[in-house]
Design a protein around this nucleic acid. Structure first.
Lengths: 330, 330
DNA sequence: ACGCGTGCTGCAAGCGATTGCACGATTGAG
DNA sequence: CTCAATCGTGCAATCGCTTGCAGCACGCGT
């Protein structure tokens, strides 16, 4: 292994000079620096992360926790996060909490003195816990807003509201909302915004559901029996299940039921060209979250800033006018 | 922050004694150890990972690379890996390579001196590269076998062979195989085993396909036109797309086409109760891989051992006798 | 009663880097 | 030509922990 002093010897300078040439070039004369750099890469010198961490207190590691990896929704988020981390010279530790507050807490605990900052996607821990944690380490939450903790929120509630408006505009008056898993912070907010957006429509909230194919499939009868003419699903997996069952029953979309989805199918390789959905800027969200964490790490300030990321409405063939428009005044 | 010497002072012993009490209890008298332990947890002492790493050369970190997280297939693998790592007191760094050999190499490089060992799921780098890397660090590959590198292989080729036998037994004589993405090491091996298992059947290999819904959907016509009566899909996402299109065309399973899948749908929340598939021990595979890496870390031996994990055949309703049995002798 | 092994504990030397401080050289001003 | 900034470099301390070695006390055999 090549150490700083080896490079120093090769370049005919002291170890401190090498250290500075590598990390604070402006302190060193052009000539020396060039010589040092040449020697360093001739010998293939690499920082010893632990040694550096010991003295600087910085590890160069960032943690990113997600409730699950089974939902491919998180894939592009992590991709974006990893990209941002890499650009800043950081390494990302991805950790899975299984949506368990206990595991999440344990994770915080184990990782707290191993990383410089923490990003938590959809954390399930109590707010007080998160706030406390944020006081000890730079922390940014994604898709959850907690007093005293910086956050990045993908504005799917707004998107769901717009989906509602879109459906109402087509003449729908009874819309089912297939809710997500218990513990989702966004889910009730989506429902609320939906109701606010279309006060004239009856909203049938179903769920909570685990985001699974079968759960979606099982809702078809309920939805139809209730007389809903449109469905907004929390998640693409639910929607797929519902669609499959619908097709098997010989029903079609949007004639028999309009379908819309509150997340983006493409992440999972499940993109269906004809489904009305929300395009969520997932990679961007991951990137922003990490960049935000890094800014906290750099400034040591606790600014409690919040970012809201807009979503895009993709209006496509799975939504249309309901078969029978309600007669007014009958 | 609580340091070793603080605990030492509190317990009335030297720092070395505390260190030993914590990591080599057998060197310390029962009484002293108890006193130290009490002091340590009263003060809330935690190891300083960097300091420890600096002197021991062990970081307590393991890397686990996957080609993508968009395919939920890797979710349970990572879950199993994380569990095994945690049990051994290690932290797992999950890294995504995007199926790019270059990114993979870069990752190896960046992580090599940050971690104690490396697990690579479905690595895409050239064999020589992997072998070289294995010489510098404990490395175990999952689902890829390379000379000189320890590996864990989920025996899906065998499973696909059995799927073939199952289909042939039902009377199928022409079977389509929907291949996976370019670069998959297992894919050609599955195809080969399929051919070996059912020498009397015509096998129509299609692909390579990205494991996406739409790609699956687009194959339906080809499969039917070619006169295939059964399909084996590389991946559940492909199969779902195919099934969706099939249903839309008013065709049904298994009457019009028998369907089978070479991986497990349940990981993605896409479990469909009636699809014949292979159950792959994904979590187990992740766990084994990590345990194997850890054994290399511990022993410093390079044993070049290989593990083969059997898969389970789930025979269900999506496979049945073909509509018209081929007439023998016209 | 003496010596020696055995079992615990402390001392001090690192691990490899960063960084405050001091110092020598160079340069510009007076 | 002298003195004082300024710039670049080296010395040495330090980060928190582990570990080889030495020392001390005790117990045992003879």
């Amino acid at each position: 292994m090549v150490r700083l002093k080896d490079v120093a010897q090769a370049a005919g300078v002291s170890a401190s000079t090498v250290s500075r040439a590598l990390s604070n070039p402006e302190l060193i004369s052009e000539a020396t620096r060039a010589r040092v750099l040449a020697a360093a890469d001739r010998l293939g010198y690499r920082h010893h992360p632990a040694a550096r961490a010991l003295v600087t207190g910085r590890t160069g590691l960032l943690a990113f926790s997600v409730p699950t990896l089974a939902n491919p929704f998180f894939a592009p988020i992590i991709a974006g996060a990893q990209e941002a981390a890499e650009e800043a010279g950081y390494e990302l530790i991805v950790a899975v909490t299984d949506s368990s507050p206990e595991r999440e807490t344990a994770l915080f605990d184990r990782l707290a003195d191993r990383v410089d900052g923490f990003a938590a996607a959809g954390p399930r821990s109590p707010a007080s816990q998160l706030a406390r944690f944020a006081r000890s380490l730079p922390l940014v939450t994604l898709n959850r807003r907690v007093r005293g903790v910086d956050s990045v929120i993908i504005d799917t509630p707004d998107g769901v509201g717009r989906l509602g408006t879109h459906l109402a505009g087509l003449g729908h008056r009874k819309i089912a909302y297939l809710g997500g898993p218990t513990g989702s912070w966004l889910d009730p907010r989506r429902l609320r915004r939906l109701r606010e957006a279309v006060p004239d429509c009856a909203i049938l909230p179903l769920g909570p559901f685990p985001p699974e194919f079968e759960a979606g499939a099982r809702t078809v009868e309920t939805v139809l029996d209730a007389g809903c003419t449109a469905v907004i699903a929390y998640n693409s997996t639910l929607l797929l299940g519902l669609l499959h069952r619908l097709t098997m029953l010989g029903l079609s979309t949007p004639e028999d039921l309009s379908l819309a989805c509150a997340d983006d199918l493409s992440a999972a390789g499940l993109a269906m060209p004809d489904v009305t959905a929300l395009h969520v800027p997932a990679a961007e969200a991951g990137r922003r979250t990490v960049e935000h964490v890094l800014s906290l790490v750099a400034s040591e300030s606790r600014s409690a800033a919040h970012q809201l990321l807009p979503v895009e409405l993709l209006t496509r063939a799975s939504t249309g006018r309901p078969r029978e428009l309600p007669m007014s005044g009958g």
